[in-house]
């Protein structure tokens, strides 16, 4: 398994754990109809900070986990990246349309902010999933 592939596995686990925990925690203890996004702002920023640190730690850890493996990024990695980014861009376009609909139908800031956050997380998970699938299946 290449460095990139190992890193993608690690980041996928970190993403699902970090944001999965947040969404479960928020949506099991909050009344969506009356929730105020202002109460979650600092929590969301802190979570993003923790997530970025965990991603960096994962990338460094996967490097040292097998120091004999290739750390280079070659043409196959680029091609897999390109396919994954294309699929993610379709998903993002759909998500943007959905968010536009939420704004037009005057949903609360809490709902809109969490749909945006959910779209970011799902795009990341989708991108990583597609990359890992293509590494196994081939391009």
């Amino acid at each position: 398994m290449s460095y990139m592939e190992r890193t993608y596995y690690g980041v996928l686990v970190v993403t699902i754990a970090c944001f999965g925990w947040y969404f479960v925690d928020v949506f099991t203890g909050v009344d969506i109809a009356t929730a105020d996004i202002g109460e979650f702002t600092s929590r969301i920023w802190i979570m993003f900070g923790i997530y970025i640190v965990l991603v960096i730690v994962t990338a460094v850890a996967t490097h040292f986990a097998d120091s004999g493996a290739d750390d280079e990024f070659d043409e196959r990695d680029s091609q897999i990246d390109m396919y994954a980014e294309r699929i993610c861009s379709y998903f993002q376009a759909g998500a943007l349309l959905g968010i536009l609909a939420l704004v037009m139908y005057q949903f609360s800031s809490f709902v809109i902010a969490h749909v945006v956050l959910g779209a970011i997380v799902l795009t990341t998970v989708l991108g990583l999933g597609v990359r890992l699938y293509l590494y196994r299946r081939g391009v």
Partner: peptide
């Protein structure tokens, strides 16, 4: 100038 994983993928006909 490729990674070993890419050579493996080429040999196996996956790339």
């Amino acid at each position: 100038g490729l990674t070993r994983q890419t050579i493996i993928a080429i040999e196996q006909g996956r790339y």
